[in-house]
Amino acid sequence: MVLLTVSLPLTVRGDRLFQGHPREHAVDKNNIMTNETRTFQMDAQVDQGGETLPTDIHKQPFAPALEALRRVEKKTEQVEVEPTHLAQRDLKELTQVFQIRDTTVNERHVSDLVKLLSIHGTIDPIRVWRCGGAVIVIDGHHRLEAFRRWNRRAPVPVKFFKGTVDDAIRFAETANNQINLQLTYQERADYAWKLVVHADELGKLSKAQLIARTTISKGTIDTMRKAARELGVRARQIRSWYEAHQEWKHGQGEDDREYNSSWQEAEAMKMVDRLGDEFGKMLAKRPEITAKAFRHILGRMTPDVAVRMLEEYGLQVTLRDQDGNEVDDPEDFEPQQPSDPDMDLPF
């Protein structure tokens, strides 16, 4: 193991410390700076001995990759004092195991992180886990990508996670539920599908555990488990729940998606993702504006949608007109005209 001691100049601004310009991160070992410094150890090879992971583990499917990690972690030597920064080349990514969201890079999020790096010279540490001679990213894939785009020579701040590979996977799940870049329904559904397919390898996960770890509904988890059983070995080859669901239904000769609760939930959550991106919390903060906006959008379908929304909430609804008469069929009801039919909506 080769240990390299690196000293970087620090600038004090208020109560925060900032490292120098990114170009100053290059280290001249023959010219150690004498200014106020913060010293950290950078493990150039990140080699702690013991058994090593397969060189092609990043290409392996989830199950064999998980098996390899479990085998090597048992022989991994413990390190008393871990480095606080590492070179980018020394960080390994195993997205098939630890990346909860879609592996496609969110360009807007990365761009925002690059801006923060340009201003402050650092961002929150990436969470990593040591296994054999490798240091693996378990949370912070977008932060690592931002460092690569900002300055490939810049050392990356890291914080080591201590625990088993199963603990590390659970940590990645929890971290992704807390960060600002929210998981979409499709990402949560795809991850739930992966857990369902590999439930035995992960300790025979129960239905309750699957629901708790993914926040996917009981009905959809039931559908996933049934699909996984009937697809058999093929289920492990399908990464997307949508694709798995389509293939499973096709095999059953079914395509009546309108009356399938799992499909309805998936489509509803896609709409939720789009509405959330566009309007954020405004829909809930201003219910009177939300009601007017949806009335304009839905037109004569407004009562029917309103009834269905209340029924989703667990309420039984009886509709009455302004004179107190019960309305049997909302579609036959002649609605009041909006108070301002020509109002401009912000979309």
Rank of each mutant, 00 (worst) to 15 (best):
F171P: 04
H142R: 11
D166L: 15
W129T: 01
C131V: 15
V128G: 02
H109A: 13
N106K: 12
L195W: 04
R130V: 12
S111G: 12
E107H: 13
H109F: 14
I126G: 04
F161Q: 05
A189Y: 09
A199C: 09
R170W: 14
N176C: 02
Q96F: 06
Y191K: 10
F171L: 13
N177W: 15
Q186I: 13
L195N: 05
A168C: 05
I136R: 02
H141W: 06
R170C: 14
T95L: 03
P155M: 10
H141E: 03
L183D: 00
I179E: 12
V97M: 01
W150E: 05
R108H: 12
V197C: 08
V128C: 06
T122Y: 02
G163C: 06
I126R: 01
H120G: 02
Q96S: 12
V110H: 00
D139W: 00
E145K: 13
A199G: 07
I126Q: 01
I100E: 00
K194Y: 11
E107K: 12
I100C: 00
Y185W: 13
R143S: 09
D166W: 04
I179T: 14
V137H: 00
I119S: 13
I138Y: 02
H198Y: 10
A168V: 00
P155Q: 10
D167Y: 07
R153C: 09
D190Y: 13
V197N: 05
R127N: 09
Q99N: 12
Q99M: 07
E173D: 15
L195S: 05
V105Q: 15
T122W: 02
A199N: 10
I126N: 03
R143A: 06
F171Q: 13
Y191I: 08
H109V: 11
A189H: 06
A175G: 11
K162G: 07
A168M: 02
R108V: 07
D167S: 11
A199S: 13
C131E: 05
D200C: 09
D139Q: 04
R143N: 11
H142C: 10
L116P: 03
I123M: 10
T122K: 00
A154H: 07
I169G: 00
V158M: 09
R130C: 08
K194D: 08
H198A: 07
L116R: 08
V196C: 11
T104D: 10
V128P: 01
R108I: 08
W129V: 03
